[in-house]
């Protein structure tokens, strides 16, 4: 399946949608595995918010790219190379520290994006963003609270957070990459060029990490490619698991 009439607005929206779906799926994998019942419930709440955001964005993408695809067509019938989420969201859950760091990095980015999208010239995107801002504010607060507790908790939790940061930090560069699609979207007033979100993101994340007695890692490695459908290996397994049932029964109603 190809992107159809792939206007910048459509691709731009699809990127945000894929980010939400993939992150939601990863968080949902925590179900029945969280450190406490309270956290199990909290992680699922976040996953459900993200899934709702993804569904809204897929619906809008279908209108923008004029393919008339359903949300399930986007989620279940595209191959790896057609997914345009960033690499950070697809990173495996690892331990609770890895998930916490991923949540801090992602939700801070997403909140900045949603806030900016509330003034999108695309009214539907603006409406989705208005709802998502409140949800994502909570996601960021949740990630912040846990970052503080794990960073400044025990020696073990601190070490695990350092390791998680070292693993995930390199993937943050990709979040702010500017390309033809994002520049076009920005010119059209559809949404911000992610580059412009970096100062706010960086300010918040470094402040929280500092409060959590954690040091921002240095990395020269800046993996990239997600927005062009070039993903990490574990992502293929995630999709295989997510899509196999839907694809085993083509065209049926569930």
């Amino acid at each position: 399946m190809t992107l159809g009439v792939a206007g910048a607005a459509a691709v731009y929206t699809l990127r945000a949608a894929d980010d939400c779906l993939v992150l939601s799926h990863r968080l949902a994998q925590w179900s029945s595995w969280a450190p406490t019942l309270e956290d199990d419930i909290a992680l699922t709440n976040i996953a459900l918010d993200l899934l709702g955001q993804a569904r809204g964005l897929y619906a809008r993408t279908a209108e923008l790219d004029a393919t008339g695809r359903s949300e399930d067509d986007y989620a279940f019938l595209r191959d790896e190379r057609e997914f345009v989420n960033c690499l950070l969201v697809e990173q495996e859950n690892g331990d609770f520290a890895t998930t916490t760091v991923r949540q801090l990095l992602c939700s801070t980015f997403q909140l900045a994006l949603w806030q900016s999208l509330t003034t999108s010239t695309d009214e539907q995107l603006a409406a989705i963003a208005a709802k998502a801002v409140t949800e994502t504010t909570y996601h960021r607060d949740h990630a912040t609270d846990w970052t503080l507790r794990l960073g400044d908790g025990t020696a073990e939790s601190h070490e695990r957070m350092e390791a998680a940061l070292a693993t995930l930090w390199p993937y943050t560069a990709e979040l702010f990459e500017s390309d033809a699609v994002s520049q076009e979207a920005s010119i059209l007033g559809v949404g911000p060029d992610p580059e412009s979100l970096h100062p706010e993101w960086h300010g918040y994340v470094t402040r929280v990490l500092g409060d959590a007695t954690l040091v921002v890692p240095q990395s020269t490695w800046k993996p990239s490619g997600g927005r062009q459908g070039l993903h990490t290996e574990p992502f293929g397994y995630m999709l295989a698991e997510m899509q196999h049932l839907h694809r085993s029964f083509p065209g049926v109603t569930w």
């Binding site: 799926h25 179900s31 699922t44 399930d72 997510m242 196999h244 839907h246």
Partner: peptide, 22 residues
């Protein structure tokens, strides 16, 4: 949950399993 065949079913199942934790 990770294999639910539609996004609608996925959301329902996640909410249901979450209720059980609750």
């Amino acid at each position: 949950i990770t294999r639910a065949p539609s996004l609608r079913r996925k959301a329902i199942l996640m909410a249901k399993v979450q209720d059980e934790a609750g």
